[in-house]
């Protein structure tokens, strides 16, 4: 069975500067992989390259075995890939319901089942669909991003610093929903995080990006925190 995501020797960057160099990483179906690293090491760029917002200058990107290198982002999203970016990740002017509806594939109208499923974790979703998303609190906005990403049961979830600026209880709930969705539908997750504790608590494996290269990777076991800390040390 092919990997849910296979990043095969990808080099990418902006202008003349290469932010990623020959990155190799794959995520098996049902696996959660955390990408860690300090600021400016290329974590966000990695997700943008996987989604096709940035062209890979070298290497291939495969999603569920299909080579998608060079295809536009919306084609990749159509392969049951959900992406939650870090910045400007919701449509502030649209309602909660409209934000969710945009994640539905064209032609699908019913999202009631998905909302009911996710409202178990994020109760506000069911009751506040008509609220403008920009008026949600920071934590609720992050929950909306997660809910929108999971609404259609994607096979691969790419999520960028979902815990940034969140209180511990919300972080815990986000961890719960990832674990529950994985148990229910075998979703594969590539998680970019600065919050090492959260990342290692939900991940099966981790990888550390440093200066655009994978500096370390391994299972998210008991020793992982210490190994990661060595890379992130002040």
């Amino acid at each position: 069975m092919s990997a849910a995501l296979d990043i095969d020797g990808v080099t990418a960057g902006y202008g003349e500067s290469m932010v990623l160099r020959d990155v190799r990483l794959s995520v098996a179906p049902g696996e959660v992989v955390a990408v860690l690293g300090k600021n400016g090491m290329g974590k966000t760029t990695l997700l943008k390259t996987v989604m096709g917002f940035l062209p890979a200058r070298a290497g291939r990107v495969r999603i569920a075995g299909a080579d998608v290198t060079g295809t536009p982002p919306h084609r990749r999203a159509a392969r049951a890939v959900a992406y939650g970016p870090q910045d400007r990740a919701i449509f502030q002017e649209l309602t909660v319901g409209e934000n969710l509806r945009l994640a539905l594939p064209r032609g699908v109208r019913d999202m009631q089942a998905g909302i009911e499923r996710l409202a178990a974790f994020f109760p506000f979703l069911a009751s506040r669909q008509r609220q403008r998303a920009g008026t949600l609190s920071g934590g609720e906005q992050k929950m909306l991003i997660m809910a929108r990403a999971l609404l259609t049961r994607p096979r691969l979830l790419l999520i960028d610093e979902i815990t940034e600026g969140l209180q511990p209880s919300v972080i815990t709930r986000l961890g719960e929903v990832v674990r529950a969705e994985r148990a229910a539908s075998g979703i594969a997750v590539l998680l970019v995080e600065q919050n090492v504790g959260f990342a290692l608590s939900v991940a099966d494996r981790y990888a550390v990006l440093a200066r655009g290269e994978i500096a370390d990777e391994g299972p998210a076991d008991a020793d992982a925190a210490a190994r990661v800390a060595a890379h992130l040390s002040v």
């Binding site: 815990t163 209180q167 511990p168 972080i171 995080e193 600065q194 919050n195 090492v196 504790g197 959260f198 800390a229 992130l232 002040v234």
Partner: peptide, 10 residues
């Protein structure tokens, strides 16, 4: 405090 902010512990 600074360490916790950087490593992201709550």
């Amino acid at each position: 405090l600074v360490r916790s902010i950087y490593t992201g512990t709550p």
